[in-house]
Each structure stands twice: as structure tokens, then as C-alpha cells.
């Protein structure tokens, strides 16, 4: 339990580390989800609630990535990221829910601002 990624000098250790510390703790939630989902009826209130929680979780990931990003995106100004997001969403709605239009508009705003 106390070994680190770099502490065992064997070619196979990093792969075992990735399996035990990356794959297993991720996949166990997927397996649990299969058993929970198997018990849900297609039109049940419980399923509506589970869907709402899953959507809200992903939404939380999204707004954290925009408001508190890491790496080079974290060095840009919050106002720029919010402005680019707002313009992207406006383009998305104006082009009748076009994902491509939204992404291109938001990226264009960000890149233009970063390069001038």
C-alpha cells in the first residue's frame, strides 16, 4: 500500500500500478452501475432521479473545468473564459443547437484574445 509509481524497479510494476490504482477504482463504479441500473424500470421515478444526478454530476465537472482549470488554461483570465463560454452558447442556440457552431465560436474567442 505504501509503494509509489517509481519505487519498484521492475518493468511490469508501472502497469500493475495503473491497473490497481487507476483501472480497478474506476471500473468498480461501472460494475456497480450495471447492477443498480438492472433494477430500474424504464419509466420509473427512480430512473428519472438517477438521470438527473448523473447529468448534474457532469454539469459540475464542466463548470469546474471552466472556472478552476489547471495547466495553461488556468493562466488565462476568468473573464475571458466566461466570455468565450457565453459567446459559444449564444452561437449554439442561434445556429439551432449546433454543437460545432458553439465549440468553434468559443474557441475562436479564446484564441483571438490569446494571440492579440
Amino acid at each position: 500500500m505504501n509503494q509509489t509509481f517509481f519505487s519498484v524497479d521492475a518493468w511490469w510494476w508501472p502497469y500493475v500500478f495503473i491497473l490497481l490504482a487507476g483501472s480497478l477504482p474506476t471500473n468498480m463504479w461501472r460494475w456497480l452501475g450495471v447492477f443498480v441500473g438492472g433494477a430500474l424500470r424504464d419509466d420509473s421515478d427512480l430512473l428519472l432521479w438517477v438521470r438527473a444526478v448523473a447529468s448534474a454530476l457532469i454539469a459540475g465537472v464542466i463548470s469546474k473545468l471552466i472556472l478552476f482549470p489547471s495547466g495553461p488554461l488556468g493562466d488565462t483570465s476568468m473573464l475571458l473564459r466566461l466570455g468565450a463560454t457565453a459567446i459559444g452558447m449564444a452561437a449554439f442556440w442561434l445556429c439551432r443547437k449546433s454543437i460545432l457552431a458553439g465549440v468553434v465560436a468559443a474557441e475562436a474567442v479564446l484564441l483571438v484574445a490569446l494571440f492579440i
Partner: peptide, 23 residues
């Protein structure tokens, strides 16, 4: 390795409701 596994597990709990809604 134990603490990394814990952090990864905490980051991926969302997969349970996602898979449950997907089934």
C-alpha cells in the same frame, strides 16, 4: 498506491449513476 487508488475512486463515483441510467 493506496492513496492514488482512493483519489481515482473519488474522481469516478459519477460513473455509477451514469451507467445505471444507461442500462
Amino acid at each position: 498506491i493506496g492513496l492514488v487508488a482512493l483519489a481515482v475512486a473519488l474522481a469516478s463515483v459519477r460513473l455509477t449513476p451514469m451507467v445505471a441510467a444507461w442500462v
